[in-house]
Lab assay of single mutants.
Amino acid sequence: MQFKLIINGKTLKGEITLEAVDAAEAEKKFKQYANDNGIDGEWTYDDATKTFTVTE
């Protein structure tokens, strides 16, 4: 399945997509990506659109 991450950071904004088996795997990958890029914020997930959002 394809999942999307919307980044609303203080210095980094944008979207990325990835393939994952389920939402838990996608969340783990997205949070690792955010951590690697210094993004720390409030996370939400919309199951209907398979979209994660992180807002700093």
Rank of each mutant, 00 (worst) to 15 (best):
Y33N: 02
L18T: 05
F30E: 00
T53D: 03
Q32L: 15
E27T: 13
D40P: 09
A24V: 06
T49M: 09
Y45R: 03
E27K: 10
K4V: 06
T55E: 13
L5D: 00
G38R: 11
N37V: 07
K29Y: 11
I39V: 08
D47H: 11
T53W: 10
T17E: 09
I6H: 08
Q2Y: 14
T11G: 08
G14W: 07
G14T: 07
M1D: 06
I39D: 01
T44D: 09
V21Q: 14
K29M: 06
T44F: 11
N37D: 03
A23M: 10
K10G: 08
W43T: 01
E15F: 12
I6F: 13
K31G: 03
E15H: 14
A20P: 01
E15C: 07
I6W: 10
T11K: 11
D46I: 14
F30H: 01
I16G: 02
T11F: 07
T53Y: 08
A26F: 00
Q2N: 07
K31F: 05
F3C: 02
Q32W: 04
G38F: 10
E42P: 04
G14F: 10
Y45A: 01
M1A: 06
T17W: 14
D40R: 12
K31P: 00
D40G: 14
W43Y: 03
F52K: 00
Y33I: 07
A23N: 14
E42G: 11
E19L: 08
A34E: 01
V54C: 03
V54I: 06
I6Q: 11
F30Y: 03
E15M: 12
T53E: 11
I7L: 05
I6G: 02
F3Y: 04
K10H: 15
F30I: 03
E56P: 10
K29G: 10
T44G: 15
K28S: 10
L5E: 00
I39K: 01
Y45K: 02
T11L: 13
T11H: 05
T11V: 15
E27Q: 15
A34Q: 02
D22N: 12
D36H: 14
V54L: 11
K31H: 08
D47W: 07
E42H: 13
L5A: 03
A34P: 00
I16T: 15
A20W: 03
T11I: 09
T55M: 04
K4M: 09
V54T: 02
K31C: 03
N35A: 12
V21I: 14
K28D: 05
A20T: 09
E27V: 11
Q32R: 12
V21E: 14
E15P: 06
N37E: 06
D22A: 07
A48Y: 13
A26G: 03
E19T: 15
W43P: 01
F30P: 00
D22I: 04
D22F: 06
F52G: 00
L5N: 01
L12M: 11
A34D: 00
N35T: 09
T44Y: 15
K50T: 07
E27N: 07
I6K: 11
E27R: 09
L18H: 10
A48Q: 08
K50N: 11
A48D: 08
K28E: 07
Y33K: 03
N35V: 15
N8F: 13
W43I: 04
N35I: 13
L18K: 07
N35C: 04
A24D: 07
F52H: 02
A34V: 11
D47E: 04
T49L: 12
F3N: 00
D46F: 09
F30K: 00
T51G: 02
V54A: 03
I39M: 09
T55D: 14
T49Y: 11
Y45Q: 02
N8P: 03
A24Q: 11
K31L: 08
K13A: 14
T49F: 14
L18R: 06
A26V: 03
V21M: 11
L18Y: 11
K29T: 10
Q32N: 14
Q2P: 08
L12H: 11
I16H: 14
D40F: 12
A34F: 03
T44P: 00
F3I: 02
Q32M: 12
A34M: 05
Q2A: 12
I39A: 03
Q2L: 06
N35L: 14
G14Y: 10
K10Y: 05
I6R: 12
T55L: 13
F3K: 00
E56A: 14
F30Q: 00
N35W: 13
E27W: 12
D47T: 08
Q2H: 13
K29S: 06
W43K: 00
G41F: 03
L5K: 00
E15Q: 08
D36T: 14
E25W: 05
L18V: 15
I16D: 02
G14H: 10
A24W: 14
Q32S: 15
Q2I: 05
D40N: 15
G9T: 14
W43F: 09
D47M: 12
G14L: 14
F3S: 00
A34S: 08
K10S: 04
T53R: 09
D22K: 04
A23L: 06
K10F: 13
E42I: 09
D36N: 09
D47Y: 13
E19W: 09
Q32T: 07
D46P: 00
K29C: 04
E25G: 08
Q2K: 12
T44L: 11
K28F: 10
T51Y: 04
T55W: 11
K50R: 09
I39F: 10
E56F: 12
D40T: 05
D47V: 10
I6C: 04
V21A: 09
I6T: 07
V54Y: 02
A24Y: 09
T44C: 06
K4L: 11
E27D: 13
A48T: 14
D36K: 15
A20R: 02
Q32G: 12
Q2M: 13
I7P: 01
N35P: 01
A34I: 06
D36R: 10
A48W: 08
F52I: 01
F52S: 01
F30W: 02
T55V: 09
G9F: 14
K50A: 10
I16F: 09
E42W: 09
